[in-house]
Nucleic acid binder design. Sequence first.
DNA 1: GCGACATACATCGTAACACGAGGTAATAAC
DNA 2: GTTATTACCTCGTGTTACGATGTATGTCGC
Lengths: 103, 103
Amino acid sequence: MDIQLKRGLLDVCVLAAIKNEDSYGYRIIKDMKPYLELSESTLYTILKRLETARMLEVHTVEHEGRLRKYYHITPAGVQRIEEFKTDWEEIRSIYRFITREEA
Amino acid sequence: MDIQLKRGLLDVCVLAAIKNEDSYGYRIIKDMKPYLELSESTLYTILKRLETARMLEVHTVEHEGRLRKYYHITPAGVQRIEEFKTDWEEIRSIYRFITREEA
DNA sequence: GCGACATACATCGTAACACGAGGTAATAAC
DNA sequence: GTTATTACCTCGTGTTACGATGTATGTCGC
């Protein structure tokens, strides 16, 4: 899919991936893969950004000798998803503008 | 609307705005305004980009003492719109991923 | 005639961003 | 002991949207 098209979806997608259950980087990529592929470097950038924006919180857990950083969504993160749903109506309107057949 | 979300829509939107009838910068902005607002600097950047990508062609016309650069869509531009329609199915799938309610 | 506004184009600098390439380190399988 | 998998991170680069700014003409009110 077109990179530019992905941009607006990525942040919200990551938030959606942890909304129902706390998750960590490696697993988020796997969960999202059927819908939207993203590289590790991209994901970790996004996670850092969302953390700075306080849309998620981190707690590190040791799991079989390796570190895992679990991410938990905050109310601000949930609100971000809600805002996306509002934007969606606008996107659908734009879609109709693009696909309309006049001539 | 979220800037990132606009990004993937902008190019295709501009192509759609000239698809049925050749148009020029100033008018494109006005036509698109109800759907998607964009500044002049953004539009002219987009037009230049689409021209370089040979998705549209320019012909300059003098109109009441002022220059007007009319843009005409090429087959590659039409194809770009068709590709967007394909991408749309993916976007809808992502939307469902984001808005699903599991818990 | 002159100021304000609309029409119509263009450029520059900046900040945000996705991603490839590369790095570290532990466990598991063979 | 080498390869694969899990799990994290950073740096550099190219693309991009947009505000600020500039140029120039036409129109309308006063």
